[in-house]
Computed example of a mutant assay.
Amino acid sequence: MSNRFDARFYQRFYMNPQTRVTTRDEMARRAGMVAALVKQLELPVKRILDAGCGLGWLRAPLLEAFPEATYIGLEVSEHLCQEHGWVNESLADYRPRGRFDLIVCYDVMQYLSDRESAQAMANLARLSRGALYFHAPTQEDWRDNADRDTSDSNITLRRASWYRSRLARHFEHAGFGVHVRRGVPWGQWELERSG
């Protein structure tokens, strides 16, 4: 899979203004939203894992929000690991020392098989000691929300329930894609909770 994510892939989906799926500014806003919610929940952040970090556009805004934290970028693209110094490994197999206070897993699972994705989901629980920001496009997203002109269609789409059931085993949803590891103390007012 690492060969799939070569310089041409990132040029097309991230650098070319006509075909890019996101921008550095959009990713900075996303990082700001995640950081604000994690801070509101009063969850300490000393170690950050960006699983599937790509070009690392979340790195600077997350470290600005959490200046005492260390950041590890995990990526399967050999090209990007050589260029940026990320850890070259799949989330399904990653076994570092220690756990992370904040894990970002943004748009990774659709590139994994069902077996690999289930392993990666279980690994997220093993690696987390705090907050997880999780996002993956679902079948409904592809139908109703995705810009198919700029989105990579060579992906595996699953139902939201597939992800939610696996997340619920180890995490509680706090809102906007942020989940908190079960057993970690945090509070939320009743009307702030979903459902």
Rank of each mutant, 00 (worst) to 15 (best):
I155E: 13
E172C: 08
A136F: 01
R181E: 04
Y163M: 10
P137T: 13
A168W: 02
G177K: 01
D149Y: 14
N145V: 13
Y163N: 10
D152T: 01
A131D: 06
D141E: 05
Q139C: 14
W186Q: 01
R148V: 09
P137Y: 12
G175K: 03
F176A: 14
S165I: 11
E140Q: 11
T156F: 11
R164L: 08
N145Q: 13
H135Y: 14
T138P: 02
R129S: 09
D149E: 15
T150F: 03
L132P: 00
R166N: 04
R169D: 12
S153F: 07
G183E: 08
Y133T: 03
W162V: 06
D144Y: 05
A160Q: 15
H135E: 14
R182V: 10
Y163D: 07
W162L: 09
V180M: 01
A146F: 07
R143C: 12
G177C: 02
L157P: 05
V178N: 03
I155N: 05
R148T: 14
Q139P: 01
D144G: 13
D144H: 13
Y163Q: 06
S165G: 15
L157A: 03
T156V: 10
T150S: 09
L132K: 00
T156L: 11
H135W: 05
G130V: 04
H170D: 15
L157S: 05
P137M: 11
D152V: 08
R159S: 15
R148W: 13
V178K: 01
R181V: 11
R129G: 01
F176E: 13
Q139Y: 02
A136M: 10
G177Q: 03
R166M: 09
S151Y: 13
D141G: 12
W186P: 04
F176T: 08
D147T: 10
N154M: 12
A136V: 07
T156K: 04
L132T: 00
